[in-house]
Computed example of a mutant assay.
Amino acid sequence: MKNAVFVAGAAAAFLIVAPGAALAATSTTPAKPAEPTTTAPEYPDGPMTRVTRQLTVAPAKAKPGTHVTLDFHCQTRGPDENVTVRSAALAFGKPGNWGDGTVKDVKPGKYTVTLHCGPETSTASLEVLAAKKPGPKQVVKVPSGAPQTGGTDGPADGSGAPLAAAAAMGALALGGSGLVLARRARRR
């Protein structure tokens, strides 16, 4: 029993002392932020930004088959520096004509469009929307006959309708009168 009390007391003392010791061991001075590093390419004639207007795609959301316009400006240092645009979602009419593209028939989602201007790049995003698939053809049944077209079996000008209504009301009145006379006869 004494051993259990001793172990419980030692555990309680550890729980009380341990957090204070941990806090005392931590530094209270804030960490110095890391120095930003740049890895700009070194050019023999000095620094130069080749992409002078970042790449944009308009419209930014399009369905397959839609024509999109790419806007950018790239300044190269010579004919050996190639300018290309690459994307899994775009097709270009002619190589080197990077201002216009057509959205390919690809899965809907976001795709990256990358401009390569010599050693520099610029990227834009293109969201391909789902193509509206044509639904099944609707079969149209042409109505035929009187009930489907709204026609009647009588005259088309409606001249027989008032006469038929008057005959029906007369028969109803005659039947009601007969019913009243039959009830009176039973009461007597």
Rank of each mutant, 00 (worst) to 15 (best):
P108Q: 06
E120I: 02
P47T: 09
T76M: 09
K94W: 08
A18E: 09
L115E: 05
A31W: 12
T28A: 11
A89K: 05
Q54I: 00
E81R: 09
S125W: 04
V51D: 01
A21G: 14
V85I: 12
R77W: 02
P134Q: 13
G135C: 07
A88P: 06
Y43G: 01
D105G: 02
S87D: 02
L129N: 08
A18H: 13
S27N: 15
K94I: 12
G93P: 10
E81N: 05
A62M: 05
T76P: 06
V17L: 15
A88Q: 13
V68K: 01
T39A: 14
P136V: 00
A11K: 03
P47D: 12
P64D: 02
K133C: 03
H67Q: 11
P41G: 00
A62L: 06
Q75K: 06
L15C: 07
K63Y: 02
T26L: 15
C74T: 00
A11S: 10
D100A: 13
A34F: 09
A25E: 10
G78S: 03
F92E: 02
A24E: 10
T29L: 15
E35T: 15
A60F: 11
P30T: 05
L15S: 10
T28K: 11
G65L: 08
T49N: 11
T121R: 15
A13Y: 08
P30E: 09
T38N: 14
A25C: 05
H116L: 11
A131G: 13
T29N: 04
K63M: 06
G118H: 10
F14H: 04
H116N: 14
A8E: 00
L90T: 01
H67N: 07
T49V: 06
F72G: 08
A58V: 10
Q54L: 11
G20S: 08
T102Q: 04
L126G: 01
H73M: 14
P136E: 00
L55C: 06
L23Y: 09
T123G: 13
A31M: 12
G96I: 11
S87Y: 04
T49Q: 11
W98R: 09
T121H: 14
E120W: 06
A89N: 04
H116P: 00
T121Q: 15
V68I: 12
T76S: 09
K110P: 03
R50F: 05
G65D: 11
T37M: 04
P47G: 12
T114I: 13
A88T: 01
L15Q: 03
T123Y: 05
D71R: 12
A91K: 12
M48G: 03
E120D: 07
T52S: 14
T39D: 14
D100V: 01
L70K: 06
A24D: 07
C117R: 08
A124T: 09
E120C: 07
M48V: 07
D45I: 03
A89L: 07
Y111I: 02
T76F: 05
P79Y: 07
K110N: 10
V103N: 02
A24F: 08
D100T: 01
L70I: 09
E35S: 12
A11M: 08
A13I: 14
H67S: 10
F92C: 07
F14Q: 05
L15F: 13
L129W: 07
E127V: 00
T39P: 00
G9M: 13
V57D: 03
V51K: 00
T52W: 07
